[in-house]
Design a protein around this nucleic acid. Structure first.
Lengths: 173, 173
DNA sequence: TGCGAGTTCTTTAGGTGTAAAGCAATCGCG
DNA sequence: CGCGATTGCTTTACACCTAAAGAACTCGCA
């Protein structure tokens, strides 16, 4: 899953909803975490696959979209700022920016005050592309989640937000 | 992030929990989907990063682990069966199996009854590796989810399961 | 029998990701 | 000033992933 598709589907049969049945009570916590993780993983991969296809229709990719969307919010960020925001390594950002520059979506300039810094700016072409994609992207995501009831979506957002915060904290320490 | 880190963090500021504040009511449904998706994405990437590091300690990777875990459940699957289970393309499976075979974890045999089929079997070394990793993996996942309350984890599992089923259905059609 | 169609796997080209090493510029502190 | 440490970026080597084209094989049906 790439992003990719899957992980440990095999360690726990998880079709429909039979995952945590007839398990002694003292063992319930752990397997349920595995099952939740599996489902999260599969949702992630299915959604990502759809969004990838949509991005491909616009002749672009998710990584480029992420770059452009970040620049739309704040133009002229340095590579390391982008690396932090996009949660990928600096080397990876170098490549994404290079390909985007090759395709005329961004341009790089060296900061004259600190010549280590490479700032990235949207070109007209890049701005036009991201402007056109943003609304559609929001619509697409909305469509993918449309079958989830409003209440469930709210609680999903809350719990995932908490989980994310915990994971971020533990990653730091 | 694949597996990667992010997506559209920039289209909607999403720190802590301020995402859906002061938005006109008629617009609430869509942005909330985006925000939920963002959080799901970030959880996915943070967890995947941790698990990747754990797998690296055993000298392996998530893709290989997925392959081995599937084979542990049913040895001798064909590449296309594995491709379906792992939710990746057939070409990708070819590569993962090739590298795992190179490292002595699996071996491939041609089915004599239908010589198009390549069946993949665990070697002793592969079986030993996956046996040793499975428990630790479950523990690691449990630790990552340990801060989520039992009730929240249950509802998270339920909603993600429903979402996954909807996504699978719509992907088919 | 034989041939077209479908299935299974591999190959190719290219993007995305990591870790680790290397290079260049700046900073900090004596 | 000067030099070691740090920071920012690139490069390298490799794994992973997709889409699309191609090769090998089987099957169905005339």
């Amino acid at each position: 899953m790439s992003d990719r598709a899957r992980f440990l589907r095999s360690a726990l049969s998880d079709s429909a909803d039979t995952a945590v049945a007839d398990v002694p009570l003292r063992l319930r916590t752990d397997p349920s975490a595995l099952s939740v993780w599996l489902r999260l993983l599969e949702c992630h991969n299915l959604i990502l696959g759809q969004l990838r296809k949509e991005a491909a229709k616009d002749g672009t990719s998710l990584a480029r979209f992420d770059l452009l969307a970040n620049l739309m919010r704040r133009d002229g960020m340095t590579l390391s700022e982008l690396s932090r925001r996009m949660l990928v390594t600096a080397g990876n950002v170098t490549g994404i920016v290079a390909r985007s520059e090759r395709d005329g979506l961004v341009r790089r300039t060296v900061d004259p005050l600190d010549r280590r810094l490479a700032r990235v700016h949207l070109t007209k072409r890049g701005r036009k592309l991201i402007d056109g994609m943003t609304k559609k992207h929001a619509r697409d995501v909305g469509a993918l989640f449309s079958r989830v009831a409003e209440d469930d979506r709210a609680v999903l957002g809350r719990v995932l937000g908490e989980l994310r915060d915990h994971l971020r904290n533990e990653a730091r320490s």
